[in-house]
């Protein structure tokens, strides 16, 4: 068991390192990965911006409203680094995602809804807005693959968004995001995912984008998010981890950004059905 855990953690860390050109280059150049240096231009290829650090506190709620229908809601409180502090320096975003989830079987779900993201610009200068809204329509599809000791999840999320910059007078530009996420949930101290289980979740998501303004930067983000989580009870799960992301910026396709995001999430699952409807189906032959 411990060997397995060790192997998984090592693999994830190795993967993280491999996907992080900044880290590699930083290590080669002898600089620390979190130094606030200017972007370095590769003469022949891409430019990687300076690494940003953020922190996201997330609350995820899935509330059962009928046998197969759920109300899904996410609220993120996101902060970003400032001149004074990494990770928690200043307000970045408040992110609201809501949708109706349909779970016809225990291995598939489909969700659709809307997102309203509030982007903050605490140090807005003249001619810029301190707050802009970004609405989206989204829908996602999740398949799960159960194995004896773990589960694999494939998530495809499609978002149709209207985005604009902070500059006053900017117009909303419609674009689409194409997201695919692969993750596993591997219980560490229990044979299966159950209350009391700590689990490790390797999580990789590729986010592509398209739209009239997207020319040479279709790769919006690649997120690598190894997480440790704890299932307190069937209704509550906590997770924490550091996510590494990288992707092309809007300025140019060859300019990449990198981020380390500390994330702490709480997952709440409640059943809003009437009591009689909560009684699980009984097989008299069990």
């Amino acid at each position: 068991m411990l060997k397995n855990i060790y192997f998984i953690v090592c693999s994830c860390l190795l993967g993280l390192v491999c996907f992080s050109p900044t880290l590699l280059s930083a290590q080669e150049s002898g600089e620390t990965p979190f130094s606030m240096s200017t972007p370095k231009a590769d003469a022949e290829a891409s430019v990687v911006r300076e690494i940003q650090t953020l922190s996201w506190l997330g609350g995820y709620g899935t509330f059962r409203i009928s046998d197969k229908w759920y109300w899904h809601g996410e609220l993120h409180y996101r902060r970003t680094q400032s001149d004074k502090a990494l990770f928690l320096g200043e307000m970045a975003q408040i992110y609201n995602r809501h949708g109706i989830k349909y779970i016809p079987t225990k291995n598939f779900s489909a969700t659709a809804g809307g997102v309203l993201r509030l982007d903050f610009n605490p140090n807005a200068e003249e001619g810029f807005n301190g707050l802009i809204l970004e609405p989206r329509i989204w829908h996602e599809y999740i398949w799960t693959m159960p194995f004896n000791r773990f589960r694999i999840y494939h998530r495809i999320r499609l978002e149709h968004r209207w985005k604009k910059g902070f500059a006053k007078g900017d117009e909303y530009v419609f674009g689409n995001r194409w997201r695919y996420k692969f993750l596993m949930k591997i219980p560490l101290n229990k044979p299966k995912l159950e209350p009391g289980a700590f689990y490790f979740s390797p999580d990789v998501e590729l986010i592509m984008q398209s739209g009239s303004k997207i020319k040479d930067n279709p790769l919006e983000d690649l997120r690598i998010f190894p997480t440790f989580a704890y299932i307190a009870n069937p209704r509550t799960t906590y997770s924490a981890g550091v996510m590494y992301t990288t992707g092309q910026t809007t300025e140019a396709g060859f300019i990449y950004r990198e981020r380390f995001i500390v994330r702490f999430n709480v997952y709440i699952n409640l059943d809003f059905r009437k009591f009689k409807d909560k009684i699980p189906e009984t097989s008299f032959y069990d």
């Binding site: 779970i103 589960r151 299932i231 699980p280």
Partner: peptide, 14 residues
């Protein structure tokens, strides 16, 4: 009591 956890998409007993 066994209930379905839609987050991890498994039935969970408590």
């Amino acid at each position: 009591r066994t209930s379905f956890n839609p987050f991890v998409m498994v039935d969970m007993s408590e």
